[in-house]
Design a protein around this nucleic acid. Structure first.
Lengths: 152, 152
DNA sequence: GTAATTCCTAAAGTTAACTTTAGCTCAAGG
DNA sequence: CCTTGAGCTAAAGTTAACTTTAGGAATTAC
């Protein structure tokens, strides 16, 4: 029952999500979104793609790389437009990540409280950094890692 | 009263802070740390530099760029080795940033709870994103911004 | 119907934060 | 002494995540 009226051109999607048009094209090239094309070759997005893009942004905010996000999104149902339940399921990992991150920051905050004041601030000697934290990027290139495995 | 015994070579500092030697040299080039040199030109770090580097890492973790961090560090007393009080003072901004970040994530978490479940997830239509949030990077180049000014 | 938008692709450029490489010098151990 | 492990510099390379540019084609607005 859904015809052309449901579809949105790239510019509208950009406006609705706050992403640049170029970023959306980039995301398609990266396999994160899969707009269909008009006969003339112009991209047409489903409304549900807005949710997908929102998911991408939240996951990014939590430090996931686009590669990681692509993997997560790949768990969505095959050809069909994902339902709310699909998103709820896949979002559980985000919930957990949010919780972890919040706790980590709270710990940092608490320790910083006494620790910078007392003058002992040192990445190794202080327990400001929790060693039990995975899920941060590794490898070469630019890194922003505080809790790298091995710190104690 | 302090002679050479108090000073540490770059390798030791790298070991103590968890940073790579190359990163420390890079930080010096960026004006974030200022080790002195031996007659032969080798870097010698003060023990207090460990605290300085720890500060840099925490600030980075909170999303500050090295440029921002350099500015903050510039507020430390001129030539003298900073005291605990100096660090405590400059760390107050980090405390505030930590608090902001924690609250932001909590908000995201709470809204995500109901919001992804209910299927309304959309960056613009949902209040998942707080518009009252500054202190995120702007400009060109790679960006990871969720709460860019203008979102509602 | 035509001017102004919006869209297209492909390729190259940008930025931050480092790392790697190449070719040396210095310092510590046996 | 002489080898081996740190250090040094300068310059080039890397990576992620985009943006910009160039040169067209399709739509929309008047």
């Amino acid at each position: 029952m859904r015809r052309a009226g449901d579809m949105l051109p790239i510019g509208k999607i950009a406006a609705r999500t706050g992403l640049a048009v170029s970023a959306l094209r980039f995301y398609e090239a990266e396999g994160l979104i899969h707009p269909i094309r008009t006969a003339a070759g112009q991209r047409q997005f489903r409304r549900s793609d807005i949710r997908r893009i929102s998911f991408i942004k939240i996951a990014q905010e939590l430090g996931m790389s686009l590669t990681d996000i692509r993997q997560e999104i790949a768990k969505l149902p095959d050809g069909r437009t994902p339902t709310k339940a699909d998103w709820a399921k896949i979002s559980r990992k985000l919930q957990a990540m949010l919780d972890d991150r919040i706790h980590q920051l709270q710990r940092t905050r608490d320790v910083l409280d006494g620790c910078i004041g007392c003058g002992c601030l040192s990445l190794k000697s202080c327990k400001l950094y929790n060693p039990d934290d995975q899920m941060r990027q590794t490898g070469t290139g630019p890194r922003i890692i505080l809790n790298s495995p091995g710190d104690a």
